[in-house]
């Protein structure tokens, strides 16, 4: 079984995250790039299967200028090999370009199952898995809070907006998971040392095949025209409850016409 896991470098949610109003892109200088937590869980889901099926190959794939360290981290956790898509032509890539590039790399790598996080903490779009599945022409199971993998299919629970579904699909397939999936393991010292010797292939757009090239050359695309920063909030009064807090709070709410 060959499992491809899609991972992304994102600005650390614990830090101050910024868009640069000049370039209209994420200000990478202003924040530390880390492996997204949901991406760690996606790697964990693949490794958990590999733990019980040793002939499983786990390939982590990432696109972005500075993804090397997160790919190494996933290798240290136990992934078999890594693929890094990096090309100046992809600077400012929208969802369409990103999905086409990822699909091109996945097709080239070969796969039985693709696991992605449900949504990244920076973009939060949550449509990449669907776009990749469509490019690859395979079934899609998004938002899984449980995932059982077997040699010929997957099954899991999906909490949609108003109901919970148990869904299944034959392989090959694309799935995305939620943060209700188990936490990721930490890389061991041995894993970290070993990761340095594992294969990490670097691909440019020229390696991604004709379909990706076609999207990049001809598809419609979204362009950011303006980025505006919202003024920071200013805190209001903070009172210590001395028995009159409720009365003061109700007065405050009524002054705002909220009660």
């Amino acid at each position: 079984m060959k499992i491809v896991v899609l991972i992304k470098e994102v600005p650390d949610t614990w830090g101050e995250r910024r868009l640069d109003p000049g370039t209209r892109r994420v200000d990478r200088a202003g924040s530390d790039g880390v492996l997204d937590e949901i991406g760690e869980r996606a790697v964990e889901a693949a490794l958990a299967y590999k733990d019980g099926a040793a002939d499983t190959e786990v390939v982590v794939v990432s696109m972005g200028p500075s993804s090397t360290s997160i790919l190494r981290r996933a290798l240290a956790m136990g992934a078999t090999s890594a693929v890094h898509i990096v090309d100046d032509r992809l600077v400012g890539a929208d969802l369409g370009w990103t999905a086409a590039a990822l699909a091109g790399a996945i097709e080239r790598t070969g796969f039985d199952l693709v696991i992605a996080g449900g949504e990244s903490t920076d973009g939060r779009g949550g449509v990449i898995p669907a776009m990749v599945a469509e490019h690859l022409g395979v079934p899609l199971a998004t938002g899984l809070s449980t995932l059982q993998i077997s040699p010929d299919g997957i099954r899991g629970e999906r909490t949609a907006d108003e109901e919970t579904l148990t869904i299944s699909a034959a392989l090959p397939a694309v799935v995305s998971i939620t943060e209700r999936m188990p936490d990721a393991r930490f890389p061991s010292f041995k894993g970290t040392m070993g990761a340095k010797k594992k294969p990490l292939e670097v691909l440019s757009t020229a390696d991604l095949g004709p379909k990706a090239a076609q999207v990049i050359d001809t598809a419609a695309r979204s362009i950011v025209v303006e980025v505006v920063e919202r003024p920071a909030r200013v805190a209001g009064p903070k009172i210590v409850d001395d028995g009159t807090a409720v009365a003061q709070l109700v007065d405050f709410l009524s002054s705002k016409q909220l009660v």
Partner: peptide, 15 residues
């Protein structure tokens, strides 16, 4: 989201 992603990829639309 699933439908939007699939449609955009199938039709080469911007999303």
């Amino acid at each position: 989201r699933d439908v939007a992603g699939r449609v955009a990829a199938r039709l080469g639309a911007g999303i």
